[in-house]
Structures are given as C-alpha cells and as structure tokens.
Amino acid sequence: MQTKRMTFSSRWLPYALLAPQVIVTLIFFIWPASQALYQSFLRQDIFGLRTDFVWFDNFSRLFADPLYLNSLKVTFVFSLGTTFLSMSVALLFAVMVNRMIRSRDSYTTFLVWPYAVAPAIAGVLWWFIFNPSIGIMPYMLKGFGYDWNHRSSGTDAMILVIIAAAWKQISYNFLFFLAGLQSIPQSLIEAAAIDGASRFKRFWTIVFPLLSPITFFLMVVNIVYAMFDTFGVIHATTEGGPAQATNILVYKVYRDGFVNLNLGSSAAQSVILMAIVVVLTVIQFRYIERRVNY
C-alpha cells in the first residue's frame, strides 16, 4: 500500500493520529468479536452456575436444529426476494428516467428520498397499509377474492417484509443504475440502431451486458443489506412470526441472545454470520479490483 512520495517524519504523531480510531475498533469491534468466538465454544447450564467448554457442539447443534435450518431458508428467500424486487424495479425506473431530458432531475428527486427512511419506519408504513382490519391493500385484495392476513399466513408475512425492505432500497439501486446507464457510450447504441436493432433488442444485447459490473456490485450490496440491515423491518412488524415464517438469521441472533438468553447458541450464530459477511466483503472487494465485464 502506497504513501506519498515524500512523507512527514515523526516518531509518535502517526500513532497519536490513529489512536482514537484504533481504540474504538479494539474495544467495540475486535474484542466483542473475539468474545463471540470464545463464547461459541461454551455452554452454560440453565441456572448459569456452570460453564463448560464444548468445542464445536454449539455449531453442530445449530445445524441439527430445525428452527435454525428454517431460519437459513427464510433468510435465503427473504434476501433473494428483496434483492430481485428492488433491483428490477430500480432498473426499470432508471431506464425510463434515462430517456428523459428535461424531466430527469425532477423524477430523480421523487425517487431518491426513500433512502432516508429507516428500515423500521418502512416496516411500520407497509404494515399499516397491509393491516388486515383497516389497511387499504387487504381491502382491495378482497375485491379480487384474496383473503390477506399476515398474522396467520406465513407467505403473506414474507411478502409484506420483502415489499417493505425492497421499497426502501429502490432509491439506492436506482441511483447506481442511472449512473451506469449514463456512462454507456451513445455511439454504441446509435450503431446498433443504424443496423436496425429494435429498442428492446438494443437493451438486452448492448445496454444490459454493459451494466453487468454495476448489476453484480448491487447484487452483493443488496444481499448484505437484506441480511444485516433489515432487523428493524422484522422487529417492528412481524417479530419473526407467524410460526417462524419471517425469522431471519439476524433477528434470531437477537432473540436467542436477549430474549431466550441462550448465549452459547447466539454466539455461535454470530460467528456464522461474521463468516458470511467476510465472504461477501471479499467478493465485493475482488469486484472493485477486477471489474466484471463480458
């Protein structure tokens, strides 16, 4: 890693400058993370009197636990659904806005602000709209003969949290897609148009492949978002229910740690989550070094 060609020389100053950042990191990041690693090998009895070192027992129990396997599945469906929904809607908006000349900025303004809404608030907003007794959506769905109730139907609850989580993320994806579209050279599209390619064909054979680096980057970012930043959406609305149908991993760590007080299991879950973040971060950084392009 480089520095400037010429640097200042001081024996203590660089350490002093780094100190605040490194101290905060050590106390609130590295130390708790290593604690989680350590606790994941321990098990307390129910009275908290004895603590045993159990090696990988917490982990093997987790992977034998149907609730945990269910949570893995739920997380998979949830993050895939959120990523796909918000990215496809955002791409549609970006392609449409990119055609505009005069109205581009005003549409952008109308589409960026949901980024500022907290996930918990997004959850409450959609929860209200889908409220089975007074919400507008169940009322309209009843007109189509569908009886919406996210308090009893796991599928309904999952759709609700996916919509709430995806809604908030549209603005982020939209901004990146729009930036990507604007960097595609106009001459390529004109050349294809002269060769007689239709608008539809031009999009799928030229524009979409050229967007692939951004699409890939956004996919990773969205999966990270859906897996780790959506705690608020779940906690403020379904609380993992009904019958575990929306109990995503992050929410389960919290439940097992703070509500069920099963520290060993919660720590083991933390360790697994950390491993997932590490993998996703490495993928993301690899992408930055070497851009995907076909």
Binding site: F28, W31, A36, V253, L273, T281
Partner: peptide
C-alpha cells in the same frame, strides 16, 4: 493498523450484539 480498521467493515453491530452489549 490499516487491516484493523478494515476489519470493522466486516463486523456490523447486528452480528455481534450480545458481546458488544456486554462490553458497553
């Protein structure tokens, strides 16, 4: 030191809540 700082990127609060809570 650069790597220590980099590590924070990989440890969102959500994944290490119980031990961080204990520290605080």
């Amino acid at each position: 030191f650069f790597w220590i700082i980099f590590l924070t990127l990989m440890l969102p609060v959500e994944v290490r809540i119980v031990p961080t809570f204990q520290v605080v």
